[in-house]
Design a protein around this nucleic acid. Sequence first.
DNA 1: GTTTTCATGTAACCCGTTACATGATTCA
DNA 2: TGAATCATGTAACGGGTTACATGAAAAC
Lengths: 222, 222
Amino acid sequence: MSRRSGILEFAVLGLLRESPMHGYELRKRLNTSLGVFRAFSYGTLYPCLKTLVANGWLIEEPGSAPEDARAASLAGRRAKIVYRLTAEGKEHFEELLAHTGPDAWEDEHFAARFAFFGQTSRDVRMRVLEGRRSRLEERLEKMRASLARTRERLDDYTLELQRHGMESVEREVRWLNELIESERAGRDQRNGSAAQDTTGDADGLPRHRGSSRPDPSDDTAK
Amino acid sequence: MSRRSGILEFAVLGLLRESPMHGYELRKRLNTSLGVFRAFSYGTLYPCLKTLVANGWLIEEPGSAPEDARAASLAGRRAKIVYRLTAEGKEHFEELLAHTGPDAWEDEHFAARFAFFGQTSRDVRMRVLEGRRSRLEERLEKMRASLARTRERLDDYTLELQRHGMESVEREVRWLNELIESERAGRDQRNGSAAQDTTGDADGLPRHRGSSRPDPSDDTAK
DNA sequence: GTTTTCATGTAACCCGTTACATGATTCA
DNA sequence: TGAATCATGTAACGGGTTACATGAAAAC
């Protein structure tokens, strides 16, 4: 029981799927490796790990008793705790990966999903990307509407803030367009096959590593 | 007493400074007019208004008893409540406007500050913009560092997420550069004068209303 | 040998949302 | 007259942080 926040739980399971870790290290990975998205504190992480263990998705293992392994039997020895994903945990994570709901299009949730696209089947990837895009387009609608209603009653700075905000969203939409296009291209190469294995066939990213500018020949944004 | 969240309090005082309003309307303004930044719920807004009244910064006034003004004396009449800024409230808001601390560079707080730049003295505007910028640059440092450390251990999607995140931050830095430049240009025109009146002399925005592209002749980013 | 960094935890609090309850006004 | 929207509120909960307490290992 306990729905427990989604995003942290998801990210923890995802990271532990790759390899076992203890809490401290886990936290660093959460802050850095996974996109830019937020820094959870220990006050959040450790209790979360506890409930994941209680749910049977993780097990605690005694961490590397450092070069002093014989002392491990001594009472009160506080050692590193390494968390490892159980079979049920893995299964649960796979379910989470496969699940697509409106929650998955929201900013932070989306970033978390994207970070684990490497382990996500292509059709789910497509749904998530498209869901996110339409979420953003609908947001743009609202912004445009409200801007049209209130324009000229607003001072220059407010207007500038709004303009910059919209531009940011438009930019993300263009990014998503690129990604979606790449995914589609990837699918067309060896088509058919409803991708039942959740792992496996991961490719299809736009090629612009290194230098920023993608290339200014897109106007796919409706 | 009670520090009460900062950003909501700040925005409410700022909006009411322009004109008195009731809660419902206030909320809409919060969602739309003020940049894109978040939608507070009534469950947050109304209690906040109460404490602002308790602090003596607002007073409640009976709202327009609609075309039936004589009924206003009747008991139990639940009318609209219009909130108006008191003299102390105005003073307090001015203090908040003048205050610049590290909190003011954070994402949402910054957006709120920016939204009221129209009522902010130029030197405070400069401090806030520059503070924000160096906050972002320091964030970029960390991202670059962690990317350098972990590159090639990360799968393509994670990398792409990171790249896009960094590009977003870089983009905001360029935006800030433009703004700062404009502010500085504005100051140079009629220089001197340490801007003691909090209101007044508000101008200095880059000129790119309407069409997006600012113009690609900037490389101010260090 | 002392400072830093690694490592684990907890209790108190903070900010905000959801869901609910209530009622007035406007419009079809 | 009934539905939609305007308008005000509250209690329960949720998800997270801060600040604190503790201690081992590594670096200097």
